[in-house]
């Protein structure tokens, strides 16, 4: 039982950074922009979040900085794709190269200028961002560990996903966003301001990705700076968008499924299932590819990419 409980807890911890990346990317794609820079925006957030925590010693500022850094990366992407109508795939890949490079570069720069060649976030920040401890609740036998023992990113991630789901599904502005993602020309004709809404979604989505990066650099690495802390989580997030069929609420569960894939290799005894580690690492992508194929066979409009995704909109070319 204890084994199982600690597995559940580990699953949720492993899924949380992916959840942020996925929700951010869903918000992007719903507005018609396939942003392949998730990995880069997460890396930017990882760097800014860590450095803010390290230099300013304030947990809230660390999270805010990671949001702003991700949003800044996304703003570059938005200017280039929305205003300058550059190819989305190419700009996204460039953003990834830039973001990962910038993050690692800054990290090494800080390392060489640090006192003893390590960067460590102050204890008080780590404690504030660390595991929750609610009087009475966290000590409950089973529910305490499964529900009330995580760091605040876990709860923040769920909250962000629910808000994003509500925003896209239930608000008027969310409806406009979805219209833009499906058919920007029709949305424009209906009086929706396409470019400002695209900007809003891309920038906010990028900021959410950035928080996921802060999780990787601060929580996963235990408060000590390491290069490449995001290490492919952004690409898993892009895959999870498909797995969650562009729905932020489904992304919550989906991120835990993908989180489980990433740690199964440590929990499934090799004597029961002699699968190689690489198989577990491959699983998220294999499952996503399968889902992509199945969704296209069923030709379901609801569970597929927004129709206008990946194509830039030029209003004088309708």
């Amino acid at each position: 039982m204890d084994y199982f409980l600690s597995f559940i807890a580990a699953v949720i911890l492993a899924g949380t950074p992916i959840l942020f990346g996925t929700v951010g990317e869903i918000i992007n794609e719903k507005a018609g922009n396939l942003n392949l820079g998730v990995e880069g925006m997460m890396a930017l957030g990882a760097c800014a979040g860590f450095m803010a925590g390290y230099l300013l010693g304030n947990p809230a500022l660390a999270i805010a900085a990671s949001f702003l850094a991700g949003a800044a990366g996304a703003l570059i992407y938005a200017v280039l794709t929305v205003t300058f109508m550059a190819n989305q795939t190419v700009v996204g890949l460039t953003l990834t190269i830039f973001g990962v490079g910038f993050s690692n570069f800054t990290g090494e720069y800080m390392l060489t200028h640090s006192a003893n060649n390590t960067l460590k976030i102050p204890e008080n920040v780590m404690r504030a961002l660390g595991g929750l401890n609610i009087q009475g609740l966290s000590a409950l036998p089973i529910a305490g560990k499964i529900l009330f023992s995580y760091n605040i990113f876990v709860y923040l991630g769920i909250a962000v996903a629910i808000i994003a789901g509500y925003y896209l599904k239930r608000t008027k502005i969310g409806l406009s966003v979805r219209a833009i993602g499906e058919n920007p020309a029709a949305a424009d004709a209906a009086g929706i301001k396409v470019a400002p809404l695209k900007y809003l979604n891309i920038v906010v989505g990028g900021g959410i990705c950035g928080i996921g990066g802060a999780y990787a650099s601060i929580i996963t690495c235990g408060g000590v700076w390491m290069s490449n802390s995001v290490n492919g989580l952004g690409w898993i997030a892009v895959a999870l968008v498909i797995f969650a069929s562009w729905n932020p609420i489904k992304a919550i569960l989906g991120s835990y499924v993908f989180g489980a894939f990433s740690i199964l290799k440590y929990y499934v005894p090799k004597s029961y299932i002699p699968a190689p580690n690489a198989f577990y690492d491959m699983l998220p992508f294999l499952v996503t590819a399968l889902i992509l194929v199945i969704a296209s066979i069923r030709d379901s409009k609801e569970n597929s990419q927004p129709a206008g995704c990946g194509i830039n909109y030029f209003r004088e070319e309708r």
């Binding site: 895959a239 690492d281 992508f285 590819a289 194929v293 990419q305």
Partner: peptide, 20 residues
Amino acid sequence: TNETLFTLMLNYIALNLIVF
């Protein structure tokens, strides 16, 4: 089937094949 997303997934399947 959307080729952008599908080819992206195949990248990581291939990468893990090497690890395997």
